[in-house]
Structure formats: structure tokens, C-alpha cells
């Protein structure tokens, strides 16, 4: 009986322990995040507004899949950062709540959705990142343009992700196509492709792998390079001379949010001067609101030769571009 009693006691104990975990407390708001340096930003938000925040990092593709699987049933209150294309798709499929923030008057209309489904909060760019040790060992120059990436000496040293899984690489591909035109754009991508050993199936991988020396050069988001540098990695970075692709990180409120007021407060706050200044301090993306003082490094990015783009158009063209891309490079 000894064992039996113990088993029973164990089970009973369990059911006492469980409720605290079962019923997760839901005060404040919950958000899906794909944004670097998020922690201090949200702490400031909670300080300013008293609204507690729980968050989970998920790539925008994962968020979209998740809402689709849940048939639009809200999985969180707000969505912070990630590829604009996913936000565009989510808005079209009716997963987002329209909210026109009073703060958005200060913004250029190209950075927000007219109906209020999403608003851009900061601008990131796509740069080239190199591992100096690897480059030195191979006697390679750090590439300085997209054209440089096609040099035969860089064979197998260029890491990129599949644009299907990574907003960064999608924006690189779509930006190149937009500025160069389809024909020349695809031709350039094909020549770069010759140097790419394979396309990573996770967005963060090229930068991580280059930082531990698995290859020489990665196409990487600007803020990732700075973060890896802050952590102590020695990395080189160049803004491509033939145009820097950029993208905006949006914020949105989910339809059916449990705490829509809290989510809207977050949107207001992050678009406000206070919020944008916090972004400037905590991240290495460039806040969009005019008149915010940027860190010198970020200012340099803002001043680099950013391509002339219609980011919303890029968001709409996703399916088409991906299909073509899949056809050309999908085997890698």
C-alpha cells in the first residue's frame, strides 16, 4: 500500500500545484514581438503607463501561421515589429483591428496604413556584415556593394536566408527588384546566388553563423550587426554603395484582443515623442517620427544612401515575388 498511497498523495499534490500555472494571470497586455532590444522599451512603457506587458518573441511568419490556425482568434493583444508583408497579409485577412492613433498626424503617410491597421514605428535597413578573421584568413576584401557580392572569390562565403522566412531578406529582394526593375534585379540576384552555398531556413541564422565564423559575409539587418557587436563580436559592416534596402517595423492591434485599450495605449505610446525617444535609446533601428535625436551610428544609417522604395507596395507583392524566387532558387 505504501507505493499506492504515495502515488495518490503525489497526484493530489499535483492538482493543488497546478491551478497557479493553469490559470496564467492576464493583467496588462500581451504582445508578439519581433524586435531587438525590446526589454527596456517595454519596461519604460510600463513605467509610463502602469500597464504590465507579457511578450513572446516570434517571427512574423510564425505569428501569421498561428493566427491562421486559430482562425483569427486573437492569440495576443498587440503585434510589435516584424515584416510589413505579414502585417499587410494579416490586415487583408481581417486579423487586425483598425486604430487611428492621434499621434500619427506627426508622421509621413507613407509610414502608416490609411485605415489604421498598422503604423510604422521605426526604420531598419539591410547591410553587409563580415567576419574579419575569416576574410583575413581567406585574403578577401569586405564587399561594399551588392555588385561586390557577385565576385567569384566570395564563392560559398555569402550567407542569406530564404525570403519566405525572413522579413529582412524579403525586403532585400523586393527592394532590389523595385529599384533596379525586375529584369536587372533578378539577374543580379542570380549572380549573387552563385556565391550562396545555401539559403538558411531561419531568419537569424546568417548573422549568427557568420559571427561564429561559419562563413565570411552575411546579409544582415543593421540592428542585428550592432547588437552582435555590443555583445563583443568583432564584425565588419558596410552599407551597400548601390543602395541600402530598408523596411519599417510596424505595430498593430489584433482583432478580438482581450485588452484592446491597453494595446491601443501601447500604439499611442510608441508613436509618441516619449516612445520614439525610448526607441532611439534602446534600439538600433531609426525611429520614424521627425525630430528625434538619433545615436550617431543610427544617424549614419539614416544618412546612408537608402533606396527609394514604396514599402507598402513591397508588402503587397510578396506572394508573386516569393513564387518567382522559389522557382529560381527554391532548391537551395
Amino acid at each position: 500500500m505504501n507505493l499506492f498511497k504515495r502515488v495518490i498523495a503525489g497526484i493530489v499534490m499535483f492538482f493543488f500545484l497546478i491551478p497557479s500555472v493553469w490559470a496564467a494571470e492576464k493583467q496588462g497586455i500581451s504582445i508578439f514581438i519581433a524586435y531587438t532590444g525590446i526589454k527596456p522599451i517595454l519596461e519604460t512603457f510600463t513605467q509610463d503607463t502602469g500597464i504590465k506587458v507579457d511578450y513572446l518573441e516570434m517571427s512574423s511568419g510564425e505569428v501569421l501561421t498561428r493566427i491562421r490556425a486559430a482562425k483569427g482568434k486573437a492569440q495576443a493583444d498587440a503585434w510589435f515589429g516584424g515584416g510589413l508583408d505579414s502585417f499587410v497579409a494579416a490586415a487583408e485577412e481581417g486579423f487586425l483591428e483598425a486604430y487611428v492613433s492621434p499621434e500619427r498626424e506627426a508622421y509621413d503617410p507613407m509610414f502608416y496604413n490609411e485605415e489604421g491597421f498598422w503604423s510604422g514605428i521605426s526604420l531598419g535597413s539591410v547591410v553587409l556584415m563580415g567576419n574579419p578573421e575569416v576574410l583575413a584568413a581567406k585574403k578577401l576584401m569586405m564587399p561594399e556593394s551588392w555588385e561586390d557580392l557577385t565576385l567569384p572569390v566570395l564563392k560559398n562565403e555569402v550567407l542569406m536566408s530564404t525570403p519566405a522566412v525572413s522579413g529582412t531578406f524579403y525586403s532585400m529582394v523586393s527592394s532590389i527588384l523595385q529599384t533596379m526593375g525586375d529584369e536587372k534585379g533578378w539577374e543580379l540576384l542570380e549572380r549573387i546566388d552563385a556565391n550562396v552555398p545555401y539559403y538558411s531556413k531561419r531568419g537569424a541564422e546568417p548573422a549568427n553563423k557568420v559571427s561564429i565564423g561559419e562563413a565570411g559575409v552575411a546579409v544582415a539587418p543593421f540592428d542585428t550587426v550592432l547588437r552582435l557587436r555590443q555583445e563583443g563580436h568583432k564584425l565588419e559592416m558596410t552599407f551597400p554603395k548601390d543602395g541600402v534596402p530598408w523596411y519599417i517595423a510596424p505595430v498593430a492591434v489584433f482583432k478580438g484582443a482581450q485588452n484592446p485599450e491597453g494595446a491601443k495605449a501601447l500604439v499611442d505610446w510608441v508613436l509618441s515623442e516619449r516612445g520614439q525617444e525610448t526607441l532611439a535609446k534602446c534600439t538600433t533601428q531609426a525611429p520614424i517620427r521627425p525630430g528625434i535625436t538619433l545615436e550617431p551610428e543610427v544617424q549614419a544609417m539614416r544618412d546612408s544612401n537608402l533606396m527609394k522604395l514604396d514599402v507598402v507596395k513591397a508588402g503587397h507583392a510578396r506572394k508573386e515575388i516569393l513564387e518567382l524566387w522559389q522557382e529560381k532558387f527554391g532548391h537551395k
Binding site: 511568419g61 519566405a164 545555401y198
Partner: peptide
Amino acid sequence: SFQVLASRAYNTLIGVG
């Protein structure tokens, strides 16, 4: 560039959607 059914299915779900 070597992929299998399981990883491709994952990509089809998350990436291509």
C-alpha cells in the same frame, strides 16, 4: 540546400504560409 519532407513542410507552413 539539402532539405527533407519534414523541414520543407515546416517552411511551407511558416515561410510560404
